[in-house]
Computed example of a mutant assay.
Amino acid sequence: LVCEAFEKCKENVAALSLENYLRGYMELYRFFGFLGSVFSFVASDVLSKITILEGYLNSEIGEHYMTIQAMITYENTNNLLRDPKRPSGARTLLRLHRALEFIAAFIGTISTLDSDGKTSTAAQECSNKTLAKFHPWLIQNAALLAMYTLPRKQQLLEKICDQQPPQDICVLMKQLQEVAVAVYDVTQNLYEEYNILDLP
């Protein structure tokens, strides 16, 4: 479902579908649930941001939020990118965008681990390469410590596999990583083009 949503999101790289981006992210939110309480703080933050963006998408100004490009253009033109009175859609998406880099790296790494591999180590390494650069030292260390409680790969797959063989899940994880990276790269280029990667 995540792969399908992200594939549809990037069908037209000049008009990234915000609806499909959020649809894919809602499925990733469910994945966080399998990781236990360690990711509960991440999951709640993700859900709040999805809710904000869905609110704009379903509002009277929703036509300006159909695509990520349209949203950024609209907010930039109307001086809404840094408006303290309302959460900017572009800023809200930027937080999801940063987390997507971590998620793609983490899921891709899990897919290559041995069955007894530590997902905790994978999460810590991926976090250090991605999310850590945006968080102060205290939050970084708290997150790394919490990640020690993550299960080994086999245990995680048993939670999410249902009736599917683990090897099939690993193939899907690799596909998910590839499509998530593709969406991440297009979005990253867009934010660079508008010079808004530093929205506070």
Rank of each mutant, 00 (worst) to 15 (best):
H97T: 11
R82M: 12
R82E: 10
I50P: 07
E60V: 04
L81D: 04
A43Q: 15
H97L: 14
P87C: 06
M71F: 02
D45N: 05
A104Q: 10
L93W: 00
E60A: 11
T73C: 13
T67S: 14
I107V: 14
N78L: 02
F106V: 13
T51V: 06
F41N: 08
A105H: 14
M71N: 01
T77C: 06
S44A: 06
G89F: 03
N78H: 10
T77A: 13
S44Q: 09
S88I: 01
G108K: 09
S40C: 09
Y74T: 00
F102K: 10
V42A: 14
Q69V: 03
S59P: 02
F41W: 13
L57C: 04
F41L: 15
G89Q: 02
L96T: 04
P87T: 07
N76Y: 01
I68H: 00
E101W: 03
L80F: 01
Y74G: 00
N58M: 06
F106M: 11
I72G: 01
N76M: 05
E63K: 13
I72K: 04
E54S: 11
D116K: 15
E63D: 14
G108E: 11
A99I: 07
A90Y: 01
G117A: 09
E54Y: 09
A70K: 14
T109Y: 12
L47K: 15
R86N: 10
L47D: 12
E60R: 04
D45K: 01
Q69N: 11
I103H: 13
L81K: 00
G108R: 12
L94A: 12
A70S: 12
R82T: 07
N79D: 15
E54F: 03
Q69D: 07
L96K: 05
E54M: 07
V42E: 06
V46E: 11
L113E: 08
I61T: 08
A105Q: 14
R82A: 07
